[in-house]
């Protein structure tokens, strides 16, 4: 998953201190691997450089942990682009879709259409694989099947998530 864009999404919820960002991130996504403080600040610095984030208020000069950050209009655009662009199905995809969904829920964006768009992309992929499969030799059929089953697994996860969005929103916003 893209932790930078995820953090950007969290900031878009409300201007935040680096410390609060890390806490929120860990609660939502850090189940297996919490972020290090250094990583948070490095990412923030990179996004400020790219014009996606901006420090807030006049407390300049204090340490990074004393500053609040807010999302710039460029940042908002980048965020929307990320969120509503489907990821090409791959084995490591899930975390990213999950992050997108959570951020969308947090920030009041349309998580449903996010999932629908993702779903359509997956289906398209399955259709092209199925077309390739028609008339292919057994070796290839088995290869395509392997890919198809993985995409299908993602799709099932997407469907399950879509069906439980309301519940997820409640939990995320708790």
């Amino acid at each position: 998953m893209d932790s930078a864009l995820t953090l950007l999404g969290l900031v878009s919820l409300r201007p935040s201190y680096g410390y609060d960002l890390k806490q929120l991130y860990d609660r939502l996504f850090g189940l297996r691997k919490p972020l290090a403080f250094g990583q948070v600040y490095a990412t923030i610095a990179r996004m400020i450089r790219d014009g996606l984030l901006a420090p807030l208020g006049e407390e300049a000069g204090d340490g990074p942990d004393r500053k609040r950050y807010a999302v710039t209009p460029d940042g908002e655009r980048r965020l929307a682009e990320w969120m509503f662009t489907p990821d090409v199905p791959s084995e490591t995809l899930q975390n990213n879709i999950f992050a997108k969904t959570v951020v969308a829920l947090l920030t009041g964006r349309d998580a449903h259409s996010l999932l629908d768009i993702q779903r359509a992309c997956h289906m398209e992929q399955m259709r092209s694989l199925t077309r390739l499969k028609q008339g292919a030799g057994l070796m290839h059929v088995l290869l395509y099947d392997h890919a198809l089953f993985h995409i299908e697994a993602d799709l099932r996860w997407i469907d399950m998530t879509a069906a439980r969005l309301t519940q997820l929103r409640d939990e995320v916003l708790a």
């Binding site: 259709r127 199925t130 198809l148 299908e152």
Partner: peptide, 8 residues
């Protein structure tokens, strides 16, 4: 989905 994948 695997059945649906046969559709256009």
């Amino acid at each position: 989905p695997r059945t649906a994948a046969y559709a256009d």
